[in-house]
Amino acid sequence: MQLLQVEKLTKHFGGLTAVSGVDLEVERGEILGLIGPNGAGKTTLFNLISGTFAPNAGKIIFNGESIGGLKPNYICRKGLVRTFQTVKIFPEMTVFQNVLMGSLFGSEGKSWPEATGQAREILDFTGLSHLSDVPAGSLTLVNQKRVEVARALATRPQMLLLDELMAGLNPAEVAEAMELVTRIRERGITIIMIEHVMKAIMNICKRIIVLHHGKKIIEGTPEEISTNKTVIEIYLGEEEQAHAGS
């Protein structure tokens, strides 16, 4: 069975339709890539699925249950969690406390020792143990992003939505992040990732969806996407322009 099914999902902001009748399905255990030019509606789609905003129309079925319009805290407790494009950590808290918050509140009825044990395990898994006692706000961007992922993992999700995890990272850091994403999938967690870093998305994802002006343009394997004429025009073309310009 599909872990996530989205049908005809739509969101308006005033006169603008940020997400327009989007359908998508995600298999348990897969990594789905979500790409599209700036303003295509990728983040808005995540905001709808994770409960940040309620959709204007359409259905979101997670694990056979309708979650459209639920508050984010309920959706998180059902096992669907996300990270943010602009990092949202608790800057005054230590790295350990940030992750502990995920394990304390992400699922019901956990005791302190259980939650601390779980936070430690996640810190280990994400390679943050040596930074446990550092205030998260004083970390570099790449580590703050890692903390956010760690905190999300600590909620024990079945599905993780990653919004531009690799943006702003240098090539070595991108490689590390790709390795982390692969290991998260190996833990049995299903992933949807929004990414502008093509190398990452083409390497990790078996399937990619392209959004443009809020609509799903095409869906396919990395080969299909990278050779598709429309995609090259609207997306890869634009990237080349950006590269040529810079």
Binding site: G51, R82, K88, I89, P91, G102, F105, A152
Partner: peptide, 12 residues
């Protein structure tokens, strides 16, 4: 500290 983050990790 960060209300959006709090809401998205399961806090009502």
């Amino acid at each position: 500290s960060c209300e959006d983050a709090a809401a998205h990790i399961g806090i009502n």
